[in-house]
Nucleic acid binder design. Sequence first.
RNA 1: GGCGGCAUAGCCAAGUAGCUAAGGCGGCGGUCUGCAAAACCGCUAUUCAUGGGUGCAAGUCCCAUUGCCGCCUCCA
Length: 464
Amino acid sequence: MALKLTNTLTGAKEEFIPQGDIVTMYICGMTVQGPPHVGHMRAYVTSDVLIRYLKYLGYKLKVIQNFTDIDDKIIERAVQEARDYRIIAKENIDEYFWVADKMNITRADFYPLATQHIQEIIELIQKLFDKGFAYLADGDVYFSVEKFKDYGKLSKKQLEDLVAGARVEIREHKKNPLDFALWKASKAGEPYFYSPWGQGRPGWHIECSAMAMTYLGTTIDFHLGGEDLIFPHHENEIAQSEAATGRPFVRYWIHNAMLNLTGEKMSKSTKHFITAKELLEKYHPNVIRLYFLKSHYRSPQEFDFNLLEENKNAYLRIEDFLSQAEDLGISFRNNIRKDVHETFQKAMNDDLNTPKVIALLFETIKDGFGALNQKALDVVSDKYNEALFYLNSLGFITEKQNRLSFVATTSKGSVEISEKILEARTLARNKKEYEIADLIRKGIEEMGYILEDTEDKTRIKRKG
RNA sequence: GGCGGCAUAGCCAAGUAGCUAAGGCGGCGGUCUGCAAAACCGCUAUUCAUGGGUGCAAGUCCCAUUGCCGCCUCCA
């Protein structure tokens, strides 16, 4: 049984065989021209799940995720807002980390910035000059796509088809309209760096090649990103890197599908998006994660608040089982049965079939509740442990105090609701003064809490 | 126009040739309960966009049609 992943380069599900002792992974990070949106969340939850699973399988990893902190759009904004481009980049990077941490996304080992690798970028461009792939035109440096035989191998595009479509920027000094900039000469007032070709800044794609190879070597195991990056970004990265080194750049290209908002791709340029922060203000990270993982990462997914509500209800059911089990004194023991590991691996090995794992999780929850009704504590304990195993493996937050429905309790009631009120209700119930008891329950519900009477006690939950 | 992908119940969504088509949400009926809620039990696709074809056997492979989506311009 081996991990198989869809490799965009071959278009097939391939068995993952690492090239060395340490698995190297480059995650295409954000161009920090704006705050992260929900589409970014999906991409980074996907990479998080892969990282967690590789670690679960026992691999040692080195993960690099970049920030592209200089590009046309950032400069455009800096001019519009009359602020330094570095401040805009910094704000968006900070927001990215706020979101990622909240979402429990595993941190990469290092987050390099394009502007701090100008030297490496220049060296790479120089190498391309030396090998005859680059040329200078009015201060700009371009990569000559015709010189690179394999151009189009990732996106499965033919040069002639691309020219026919010809929506590329027309620049007379380009030899071929598809040639892309390695270095752009700066215009008056724009930020710039010094280079052998004059003052300017790196083109969009070169920073990823430079940083990936600087930290991970000439051939890396994984390169991840959204499928909108396949062309031209990743195609160009391959061209630059392989032209410079003569070696394969990436062994497994993994791309996640887009998140659509009302039928249309979420996109920064069209302002058609919901920021990650906005969503996190409305929904618990686990609800968002469940929503993502219920779809396969390679299928386009629709963003809709109704779907989030749906997943919130489903998620609350999981929490309910966990806390009911905990109320009986059951705790995590990490003694998961072998067949549970095997079933989990079978699903994950099949191109990270998280929807299948979610289905297993819910079957476990159902069995767990069944055992709870039967008062079969040993089974409840097993199911509790299995559920936590699935949740932890997929990166859900499982600490009790971080749960959506969690209410801090005291010996007599709750920190958040006056003990006297709860006592009054119990008193009323004992005297069979149900009208009063129900009125109190209703009042507490209006405050955002749910009271559930069970045989021996009243459970307090936060409304979702 | 070129390239690629997808069409499975009211909604979301697994399934990549072979027992009765996972799972979630919602809905309906029942059990339990002072009531409510939760939970449990049962029901909710004789059928997988349409039309052909290849197999003993097809959501699952091939062809065509229709409809959506992505990329070809900055994008995860």
